[in-house]
Design a protein around this nucleic acid. Structure first.
Lengths: 189, 189
DNA sequence: CTCGCTGTACCGATCGTTCGGTCCACACTT
DNA sequence: AAGTGTGGACCGAACGATCGGTACAGCGAG
C-alpha cells in the first residue's frame, strides 16, 4: 500500500467512526482501535488531533460531492442515467442507509464553529451539484434548486429513520421515490 | 412552583440540552449550568444519572406524540384542521426548525441499547399517530402509513438542513409542503 | 546516520458518579 | 407556644476512570 493509499484508508476509517459515533461520541481510544494505531501515532497523521480528523473527514465528503457534480454536469448522459449513477454512489456511500451521514451528525451536534460552517457549505454544495442535473434537463433555475434541496432533505430524513429502525427500507424507498419524481420533473413537453 | 411543575421544568431543560448537544455532547456540567443545580444535586432528581435523564426526556416526547394522536383521531375535526393543529404543535416544539429533534439525535449517535430501542418505538408511534389522520380521512391503511412515514421523513430531513444552515427556511417549507400534499391525499372523489 | 513512524509513559482536565453533610419547611409531641 | 423529629432539596469535595494531547526513546528502512 502506497503512502497516499494509506492516508485515504486512514481518513476513511476515521470518517466512518465519526458517522457511527458522532463527534463527541468519537474518542481517541476508539480511533486507535479502528485504525490499529497507537493513541500517540494518531497525532503523527493528524497533527492537530480530533479537529483535524473531522476536517479531513469532511474533505473526503467534499470529494464525493465533486464527483456527483461531475456526473450531473455531463453533457452526454441523460438525466435518468445521471441519477442512476448518483443513486449508486449514494447507495454505496450510505451502505443501504445503515450508515449515517457525516454532515448530518455534525449538523445535529454542537461542534466547533469551524466544523459547523464547513458542514453548512457542503450541504449547499451537495444541493447545488444535484440541482445541476435538473438545470441541464431544462428545469428553471428556481425549480432545479428546489428539487435538489427536496432530494437532499428526503435522503437525510430517510437516513435518520433507517438508523432509528436499523432497517434499510426507509432509505431504499426514498431513493426509489426520487427516481419516480425525476421522471415527472424532467419530462419535456 | 409546585413540585410537579418543577419536575416538568427540569425535564424540559434537560431534554433541550440533549437536543442541542446530543447524548455524548451533553455533560453533567452543562446540565448543571442549564438547571442552576449543583452537579451532585442532579442526582437527587435523576437517581440513575445521565441515562435516567435521557429516558425521562424521551418520555416527554412520548407525551407529545400522544397529544398528536388525540388530535388526529378526533371524530369531529376535519383533516385540514387536524393538520393545522399538529403543524402548530410541531412548529412550537421545534421552534421553527432551529431546535433539533431528540429522537434524531439519539438515532444518529451510538447510545445505550435501551435508549436506542425506545427511540425506534417512538418514531413508529409518531408515524402511526400521524397515519391516523389519513386513515380517518378515508385513505387506505397502506397509503395512510406511507403518507405518514413520508411526513416524518420530510420533517426530519428538513430539521437537519435547518440546523446545518442555521435557518428556519427548510423546516417552514417542509411544513408547507405537507399542507399542500394533504389536500391532494385527502381529496375525496 | 538520518528520517519516518511507532509504542510507552505520562500530563492536566474533565468525565459521570458518590458521599457526607447542611438547610429548611412541616408535622408531631409536650 | 416551644421543642423535637422527619424528609426533601441541595451543595462542596472527592472518587476512579477516561478524556484529548504531549514528550521521548526506540526501531526499521533508505
Amino acid at each position: 500500500m502506497t503512502m497516499d493509499e494509506r492516508q485515504l484508508d486512514l481518513v476513511d476509517k476515521v470518517a466512518r467512526t465519526f458517522r457511527e459515533n458522532g463527534f463527541h461520541g468519537t474518542t481517541m481510544s476508539i480511533i486507535s482501535d479502528r485504525t490499529d494505531l497507537g493513541r500517540s501515532s494518531i497525532y503523527h497523521h493528524f497533527g492537530r488531533g480530533k479537529l483535524e480528523m473531522a476536517h479531513r473527514s469532511l474533505e473526503s465528503i467534499e470529494a464525493i460531492i465533486h464527483s456527483i457534480r461531475q456526473t450531473t454536469s455531463s453533457p452526454t448522459l441523460s438525466p435518468a442515467t445521471k441519477w442512476e449513477v448518483v443513486r449508486a454512489m449514494l447507495h454505496r456511500h450510505y451502505e443501504g442507509g445503515l450508515l449515517g451521514c457525516l454532515l448530518a451528525v455534525f449538523a445535529m451536534e454542537e461542534v466547533p464553529n469551524e466544523l459547523r460552517d464547513q458542514t453548512g457549505r457542503l450541504f449547499s454544495a451537495w444541493a447545488d451539484a444535484t440541482a445541476e442535473l435538473y438545470r441541464m434537463a431544462g428545469c428553471l433555475e428556481m425549480d432545479a434548486l428546489r428539487y435538489a434541496q427536496r432530494d437532499v432533505i428526503l435522503i437525510q430524513g430517510a437516513l435518520v429513520l433507517s438508523r432509528a429502525h436499523g432497517s434499510s427500507a426507509p432509505f431504499e424507498e426514498a431513493l426509489e421515490d426520487i427516481s419516480e419524481a425525476l421522471e415527472l420533473r424532467t419530462s419535456q413537453t
